[in-house]
Design a binder for these strands. Structure first.
Lengths: 252, 252
DNA sequence: CAGTGGTCTAGACCACACC
DNA sequence: GTGTGGTCTAGACCACTGC
């Protein structure tokens, strides 16, 4: 007696801790509420702070918690659905949620040049945009457009900055799009993107790479990094049927 | 003199380490090669093992490294592109890469029942499948099909197991699909999925949730968890244009 | 068995937000 | 200032793989 189980498969402490905390979040906390600080929590569960942090990190990765240095740990709202490529045959969204930040003309990174199938020397417009949803920054995008894709642009010779960025986008819309191909993968935020996303460098992000095709060529390449903690990327094309957005939690 | 920089913005050690290691991986290592063990590496860089591990964890998250307990750390191949929902109006893939594992009839988790818009008591076929690509397990899927979506199935009364799973899929194919809507989000592998994916519980995964629509109703719900370290999910619909798969690395 | 990565501890100090 | 999370250390032991 005493011990009910031999613990033949000893679960890691942080894993068990995560389960306990997760259940507590469901039953005893509401969105936005702040948790006790890490030192107190660790003491309460009788573990080292590092162990507790391992559990918190997982919960943050799953979008259940939000931690901010100097502030505290709060219960995160359910992830927001963010439409990505809902219209398969559309150019980059230029809706209210996207905002052009800057535009420069540089030689792109080698990997980008390869994907664009351009020579390493060809000039490429690099448009920086940020996306806001529900009042929060959710994505930072770099849109690479070979100068040859928007020949009219060189004549305009708009100054660098948002104005030029909008010019590039405007010129792009005029091309007839054959199709686009997207890929999603996990990454970690570069320092530059992290700042725009209001996260620390290295924060987990979903990187969406999209190739825009015109006449069999890649006319533009978009690399968008979405906050993985707050976003659920939706790729819906439900034949026009609208499905409501419930505050569902993933089954576990 | 002496110090060239005041280090006014002291970069965390693990972050700098990650950069150094990343460059070393590009220049001095080839795919599959094994790295020195963690204790040696930590000593070589003059940091604690925990700090080194923080760097390795990030690199593994980005798909650059692969670590296996009892074996060692190896250089990972570039992520494989895995097609997800390439045909917008198709039922779940039943190709060679998908393999039906099991099928039971149970009451689904509450979150699933909500997404299916079924009553909490309605019977639901739960099909378990696993996906293999390039000889490696890449995904574990749970496909929820309300009994009402495949009425013919109750008559067949196939035994549990792969045979019944294939029966459910066969019945599904007969329905005319209106459309489907997918979402991608970051998650951590449940113990059950982790085993199928040959990873430890808690490993980062990309969770693809797909709703299949028939006559305005959700006729089936798929929850597929893909290994985030080895997979790049492709959502392409490039208008029939084929784009070759290069071994590109993301710009950094 | 020896060697690997995975977990855990009990401290310390730092960077940042807020008062 | 005080209090928070973020980083870092130097150990220890455990679970697993492969010889």
């Amino acid at each position: 007696m005493g011990t009910t189980q031999l613990e033949s498969v000893p679960e890691p402490k942080y894993w068990h801790l995560k389960t306990v905390l997760s259940e507590a979040l469901d039953s005893e906390f509401s969105v936005g509420e702040i948790l006790p600080n890490e030192r107190d929590l660790a003491a309460r569960f009788g573990v080292a702070r590092a162990t507790l942090r391992q559990a918190l990190e997982q919960l943050e990765l799953e979008g259940r918690l939000q931690r901010r240095r100097g502030v505290g740990t709060t219960v995160a709202p359910p992830r927001m659905g963010v439409a990505v490529g809902s219209r398969q045959h559309a150019w980059p969204d230029a809706g209210d949620d996207w905002q052009a930040v800057d535009c420069t003309v540089t030689a792109p990174p080698a990997a980008v040049a390869a994907a664009l199938e351009t020579g390493p020397d060809e000039a490429v417009h690099t448009v920086r945009r940020s996306r806001v949803s529900h009042g929060q920054p959710v994505a930072a995008e770099l849109l690479y457009v070979p100068a040859s894709s928007v020949p009219a642009l060189s004549a305009i010779d708009a100054p660098s900055g948002p104005a030029r960025a909008r010019g590039v986008l405007r010129e792009l819309q005029r091309l007839e799009l054959d199709g686009r191909e997207s890929a999603v993968e996990l990454g970690s935020a570069r320092a530059e993107d992290a700042k725009e996303l209001d996260r620390l460098p290295g924060a987990p992000v979903l990187v969406v790479t999209t190739r825009f095709l015109v006449e069999g060529r890649v006319a533009a390449l978009s690399v968008a990094t979405y906050r993985a903690d707050t976003c659920r990327l939706t790729f819906g094309d439900a034949g026009g049927v609208v499905i409501d957005e419930g505050p569902e939690r993933r089954a576990s």
